[in-house]
């Protein structure tokens, strides 16, 4: 059953259409990624789902409730981890969590236990009573993540969860997100610039550009839509290989250069073991094998005409700028 649904969702700001008749649905327990360049409408979409913005047109349903008609019912059932670091720097991690719990109407001693448990989940137990201004960027993001979990949300919205974090912290955040889905069955909608993130975490990815969804599928299908994988094979003796390869229905095309063969196929990773078995079974001796998967990077480039690397740079810059402004205030 769909737990998040957008039907013709549209947001216009004066003369700019940030989100343009977007429709998709997310199944319960799914991790769904919104991928797109800066200003594509990712955050605007999340803001409509989380009741921060009223859609100009169309409907958004979250956990069974319409965001415009029953915003409070939606708010009770969702968690939001915004792109900015919004934890209060003057409070400790535990105080931030305490405040968040009260905002969701939670109280009592079991809430204190829950706070300790959540802080422990992201390894912040030792830092729980230190002020957030002394936290590293990764620690703040982890705190932000568990703040979004205080009300046991059915749907968690993550806006650029690992933007500006170092590689190690990023992979730690990924493993927390993966655990959440496995252990609690939370449905997650995330936006990201990081291809690796979308590829590793998301069950399905929607590529959004100029407010419209230009592609929506599983990462592997998206990659397959580029024309499939390439398997490179080298043989010590290439006699009969061509005929054998060309007769396989799963193989789309074969190119030969001496003893090297380039085989194009969908789902090359599934084909490769089978192919090896038949080839070796018929007495052919491959000396080298390489599987080249098309990357989501290429998919993104194909659909948006922009390279992701540039995108990463500019939004990390924006993020650093915000952090600098923040520390300049103090």
């Amino acid at each position: 059953m769909a737990i998040v649904e957008a039907r013709g969702l549209t947001k216009r700001f004066e003369d700019l259409t940030a989100v343009d008749h977007v429709s998709f649905s997310i199944e319960e327990g799914e991790i769904f990624g919104l991928l797109g360049p800066n200003g594509a409408g990712k955050t605007t979409t999340i803001n409509m789902f989380t009741t921060l913005l009223t859609p100009t047109e169309g409907t958004a349903i979250v956990a069974g409730f319409d965001v415009t008609k029953k915003p409070n019912e939606v708010r009770r059932r969702i968690g939001l981890v915004p792109q900015d670091l919004t934890v209060d720097e003057d409070l400790t991690g535990r105080e931030n969590m305490w405040l968040q719990s009260r905002l969701y109407g939670l109280r009592g001693s079991e809430v204190d236990e829950k706070i300790s448990r959540l802080l422990d989940l992201v390894n912040l137990t030792d830092a729980a009573d230190k002020r957030v201004e002394h936290y590293s960027g990764g620690m703040r993001k982890r705190l932000e993540l568990v703040e979004g979990l205080i009300n046991d949300p059915q749907v968690l919205f993550l806006d650029e969860p690992t933007l500006g974090l170092d590689v190690q912290t990023r992979s730690a955040i990924w493993s927390y997100i993966g655990d959440l889905r496995r252990e609690k069955g939370i449905t997650i909608l995330l936006t990201t610039h990081y291809m690796e993130e979308a590829d590793r975490l998301c069950d399905r990815v929607a590529i959004i550009d100029h407010g419209k969804i230009v592609a929506l599928d599983t990462p592997s299908n998206l990659k397959a839509s580029l024309g499939g994988d390439v398997i490179e094979l080298e043989f010590t003796n290439g006699d009969g290989v061509s005929a054998k390869l060309e007769s396989d229905p799963a193989i789309l095309a074969v190119q030969r250069e001496g003893l090297k063969f380039r085989v194009k196929a969908k789902n090359g990773d599934e084909l490769l073991p089978r192919l090896m078995e038949t080839l070796i079974g018929e007495g052919m001796r491959p000396s080298r094998v390489e599987l080249v998967k098309p990357s989501l990077d290429q998919v993104y480039l194909e659909y948006t005409g922009k390279s992701l690397r540039e995108e990463q740079g500019s939004s990390e810059e924006a993020w650093r700028f915000r952090r600098n402004v923040r520390s300049a205030r103090a």
Partner: peptide, 9 residues
């Protein structure tokens, strides 16, 4: 700093 957005959500 986005704190208000978190309150509003």
């Amino acid at each position: 700093f986005g704190f208000l957005d978190k309150l509003l959500a």
